[in-house]
Simulated scan of single mutants.
Amino acid sequence: MHIKKDLIDPDGSVFLKTVKGYLENEIETEDEYTKVLSWAFSKLDFEQFAYVYMPYLPSEAKNAVILGSYPSGWQLFYKSEGLHRKDPVLAESAGTTMPFYWRGGRIGIGDQEDIFKLSARYGIEQGYTIPVHEPGCSFGSIHLASRLENDEFYKLIDSQGHLLQCLASLAHIYRPATARKLPYADLSLREREFLHWSSQGKTYQEAGIIMGISERTVKFHAQNCMRKLEAINVRQAITKALRLGWV
């Protein structure tokens, strides 16, 4: 894959169209995806970026998909320690659609400050995040980072915010297949229907009458829902299905 070395046009429209074309037509691997985004962000003078996909709530997700130009040592450590579960940046991303700087508001309070101390060893000391949400609780996010001595970091973001948001959307829309996997086994239509009626307070017997099936079959669907969603009871299965937008 050959990437052109053109300069960015005045309003960025040609630049964004070029990035979209690469992502849409020439991406087959994670490395190619990362290469295109690395090129795009470097055009805007950002050398360190990460695209993170969370299929479920960060505090409960088994793992996160992380792609980008962050130092490989930090990425390996972050993944091996499951730091996505207590990363304050991802926690904030899960609850907002607005871009934010890492050192504002609730970011980095208490024990979570330790993550920033660890990332600083790899040159990740200040940052900016753009969340991109989907229906349910899954979301993607673009993270830009630099060392503290980079005085131009905030100026670059303020002057190119519209391009950064467009790039974040493109990065999410054209993310690789590995960042599209469901966090749990998908539910059948019947299983979703059962959870819907159960969430409305219907008993097994009542759900069976409404669905036109036996109470025994309803219980079979209930067991499948709990197994697939790794829930200890139907109530927890309903909660998880609601978060995923499946009910």
Results as ranks from 00 to 15, higher is better:
residue 3 I to S: 02
residue 7 L to T: 14
residue 8 I to N: 05
residue 8 I to Q: 05
residue 11 D to L: 08
residue 14 V to T: 07
residue 14 V to Y: 09
residue 14 V to F: 15
residue 18 T to C: 07
residue 19 V to N: 01
residue 20 K to S: 15
residue 23 L to P: 01
residue 24 E to C: 14
residue 25 N to P: 01
residue 27 I to N: 08
residue 28 E to F: 08
residue 30 E to F: 04
residue 32 E to F: 06
residue 33 Y to S: 09
residue 33 Y to E: 04
residue 34 T to F: 03
residue 36 V to P: 02
residue 37 L to D: 08
residue 39 W to G: 03
residue 41 F to T: 02
residue 45 D to N: 15
residue 50 A to T: 04
residue 50 A to L: 00
residue 52 V to P: 00
residue 55 P to A: 04
residue 56 Y to T: 10
residue 58 P to E: 01
residue 60 E to G: 00
residue 63 N to F: 06
residue 65 V to A: 04
residue 65 V to E: 05
residue 66 I to R: 08
residue 67 L to E: 00
residue 68 G to R: 01
residue 72 S to R: 13
residue 73 G to Q: 04
residue 77 F to T: 11
residue 80 S to P: 07
residue 83 L to Q: 06
residue 84 H to N: 11
residue 88 P to S: 13
residue 96 T to S: 11
residue 101 Y to L: 03
residue 102 W to T: 00
residue 107 I to M: 08
residue 110 G to Q: 08
residue 112 Q to K: 07
residue 113 E to P: 00
residue 114 D to R: 15
residue 114 D to A: 14
residue 120 A to R: 09
residue 120 A to W: 10
residue 122 Y to H: 12
residue 123 G to C: 10
residue 123 G to Y: 06
residue 125 E to A: 06
residue 125 E to V: 02
residue 127 G to E: 00
residue 127 G to H: 03
residue 127 G to P: 07
residue 128 Y to P: 03
residue 129 T to H: 05
residue 131 P to G: 01
residue 131 P to R: 11
residue 134 E to I: 06
residue 138 S to H: 09
residue 138 S to Q: 14
residue 140 G to Q: 05
residue 141 S to I: 00
residue 147 R to I: 09
residue 148 L to T: 11
residue 150 N to T: 12
residue 156 L to P: 00
residue 156 L to G: 03
residue 158 D to Q: 14
residue 158 D to S: 14
residue 159 S to N: 15
residue 159 S to H: 07
residue 161 G to R: 14
residue 161 G to A: 13
residue 162 H to G: 02
residue 164 L to W: 01
residue 165 Q to H: 12
residue 169 S to A: 14
residue 175 R to W: 07
residue 175 R to I: 12
residue 177 A to P: 05
residue 179 A to F: 06
residue 180 R to K: 14
residue 181 K to I: 11
residue 183 P to R: 08
residue 183 P to V: 03
residue 188 S to T: 15
residue 189 L to T: 10
residue 192 R to N: 09
residue 192 R to S: 12
residue 193 E to K: 12
residue 193 E to S: 10
residue 197 W to I: 07
residue 197 W to R: 13
residue 199 S to E: 05
residue 200 Q to R: 15
residue 202 K to S: 11
residue 202 K to R: 15
residue 203 T to I: 02
residue 204 Y to F: 14
residue 205 Q to Y: 11
residue 208 G to T: 09
residue 213 I to N: 07
residue 215 E to I: 04
residue 217 T to W: 08
residue 219 K to C: 07
residue 221 H to A: 11
residue 224 N to A: 15
residue 226 M to R: 13
residue 229 L to I: 10
residue 229 L to C: 08
residue 233 N to D: 15
residue 236 Q to H: 08
residue 238 I to E: 09
residue 238 I to Y: 02
residue 239 T to H: 13
residue 241 A to H: 01
residue 241 A to V: 03
residue 242 L to Y: 12
residue 243 R to C: 12
residue 245 G to A: 10
residue 247 V to N: 00
